[in-house]
């Protein structure tokens, strides 16, 4: 048991994807294969970016990684759990506990204040009120929003909204943060600030972060870039090799 635990912490991968295929309109003349066998692996604590043009299957891959959708074929194991075999309720729980979403358009609940927005994932995971509020305040402090806790989203700037959204993504201490074009709706300066927060979370808290972007400059800041085109991974670039990347490179190459 001890031995297994050690093994787990040493080279634990959060995401294991093998031969994932996603088809739409199955068994109709319009049948469409969006993902054509994606295999990839993400190590705990990694800052990974996925780049690709629109229509490349990037969004579909993101939906599957985020447990919003299930693969048609292939296996996807997130934090040791097989997503493909899960029912809707299980998927909800996985999203709740293991994934922190950061959206391009922030997606804050408009009529509740920043604090309540951050509390939301904890509301669904059943964390008691007091604990919820305490943690939400702590998280808002981490992203430098402690003096705007009672503000409604409409009273916040884009950068502030995205900081609240990042705090919300961190609420249940997820395995990965899945950020879909998080700077897409922001100007360069605030976009920079958001990226700095991601770096800080990755560096200081060891958060695994998946950044989906079409901006090569942002991707260049991460540890590894996966390029996706026409439903397949066509390239892998390791920029910031830290430790024990051999295995990952192997799997990445296998995917090509």
């Amino acid at each position: 048991m001890d031995n297994l635990d050690n093994l787990d912490t040493e080279k634990r991968s959060i995401i294991e994807m093998d031969g994932v295929i996603k088809r739409f309109y199955i068994d109709t003349p319009n049948e469409l294969t969006i993902l054509k066998g994606i295999s990839m692996s993400v190590r705990e604590g990694e800052f990974l970016s996925i780049v690709g043009a629109s229509g490349s299957g990037k969004s579909t891959l993101m939906n599957i990684i985020g447990a919003l959708d299930r693969p048609t074929e292939g296996t996807y194991i997130l934090g040791g759990e097989n997503i493909q075999k899960m029912n809707t309720n299980k998927l909800s729980d996985v999203r709740n506990r293991r994934i922190g979403f950061v959206f391009q358009t922030f997606n804050l609940i408009p009529r509740t204040n920043a604090l309540k927005n951050v509390e939301l994932p904890m509301l669904y995971s059943g964390i008691p009120f007091m604990e919820r509020t305490r943690r939400a305040k702590e998280l808002l402090k981490t992203v430098g929003m402690e003096d705007r806790m009672k503000h409604l989203p409409s009273e916040l700037s884009g950068g502030q909204k995205q900081r609240v959204a990042i705090a919300r993504a961190m609420a249940n201490d997820p395995d990965i943060i899945l950020a879909d074009e998080p700077t897409g709706a922001l100007d360069t300066e605030t976009g920079r600030m958001v990226m700095d927060i991601f770096h800080k979370l990755n560096r200081e808290q060891g958060k695994t972060i998946l950044l989906i972007t079409h901006n090569p400059e942002l991707a260049a800041e991460t540890d590894r870039i996966l390029t996706i085109s026409d439903g397949e991974i066509i390239g892998e670039e390791i920029l910031n090799a830290t430790e024990d990347t051999g295995e990952i490179r192997e799997e990445g190459e296998a995917a090509q």
């Binding site: 919003l68 709740n96 506990r97």
Partner: peptide, 16 residues
């Protein structure tokens, strides 16, 4: 609709 989508992404079950 978007709010519902967000809530679901954040882990709200259908029953919630």
């Amino acid at each position: 609709t978007r709010e519902i989508g967000t809530r679901k992404a954040l882990g709200a079950r259908n029953s919630a």
